[in-house]
Design a protein around this nucleic acid. Sequence first.
DNA 1: AATTTTACTTACTAGTTAGTAAGTTGTCAA
DNA 2: TTGACAACTTACTAACTAGTAAGTAAAATT
Lengths: 190, 190
Amino acid sequence: MIRNTNTQRAILDLAESFMQDKGFNGFSYAHIAAELGVKNAAIHYHFPTKEVLGCAVIKRYRDRFQLWINNARVKDLSPQEKLDWFFSIYTNTRADNGKVCLAGSLEIDFNSIPTSLREQTEALTSELLTWLQATLSEGRDAGVFHFNGDPVSKAALILSSLQGALQMARALGTGKYYAVVEQHKQDLLA
Amino acid sequence: MIRNTNTQRAILDLAESFMQDKGFNGFSYAHIAAELGVKNAAIHYHFPTKEVLGCAVIKRYRDRFQLWINNARVKDLSPQEKLDWFFSIYTNTRADNGKVCLAGSLEIDFNSIPTSLREQTEALTSELLTWLQATLSEGRDAGVFHFNGDPVSKAALILSSLQGALQMARALGTGKYYAVVEQHKQDLLA
DNA sequence: AATTTTACTTACTAGTTAGTAAGTTGTCAA
DNA sequence: TTGACAACTTACTAACTAGTAAGTAAAATT
């Protein structure tokens, strides 16, 4: 018997990947088990219910984002570089087999997921928005970003647009996604 | 036996509603049948497969949009009024039990829907984008809209953002949606 | 060396899914 | 008034869903 101590992590990786590919309701324990070469029950051993698994995926995603933004590599960047870093998250998501934003995927499934997942989704979206708003504020104060109105609204506009652009790219191609990102830069920097 | 000659239409209405509420993979023939007070097989009588049903929903949605934009009530509006009309579609969608954009919902499910639905989704998104781009062009030429870059890119930015904002509103509330719409207006008109 | 724990497997359940085949009944046209 | 047809229902299937209970074997702990 081959013991794999990383099964728990592999399950989370696959679940995250499936959620960004097909949505929370678009994959089953059988899909994960098949990819891992184990039986369904093995997944239930590590994550008793799909709700627990889904929560763990979002929690890990949130923790990763917090780790990134609190790391000097991001923290010490200029506002412009921070924004480019943020865009690169979405660009990498698109490049990774046309995946979409985890938050957007969960928001579409919002009315058919357990409450605990909704709470995690809300927390994730809030955290993304808070960081982006702070970065926009910082950039405008530094005179590099130019926009009217509340940074909170501008952050919501940019975040919602990146989320939507990843989805739109599935129908109309990656070019549309890049066009959106470039337009944001032009709007902010001009 | 009560004969309902509008069953076909009622099925389309319910399917459209479900797709904007839970996504294409989030509802079943049983859900529609239960709402209508008929048996599953009755739905199959009108729409033999879920693929056929889904296609019919998107096709009707597209036809409705074309009818609207070609009607004098919209055609003869000023660019600013046209944009407000376009925003009102999304505002009404949000007001209707927190539904999301049909295109966005389908793009999330893109990797788990039949090819015919993907083609319909692509066509729908293209048509929305084309109209919005033309309206932005018209408005900039008339001196009422102000933005840099290609109207095609700006249209993609606005459409993707509206799509994303309806989703974000599920997690963070309707206020976030309105903030995004107001920010777009400020960005375009200032 | 004995025992416990970890990471599974086999085998199962109850519910749901899209889809089908054959029968039923009210309505309408000839 | 007969027959065709439209709009269903009943009854079913095969596949898939999340989840459970009991057993097993290797590794870690004592």
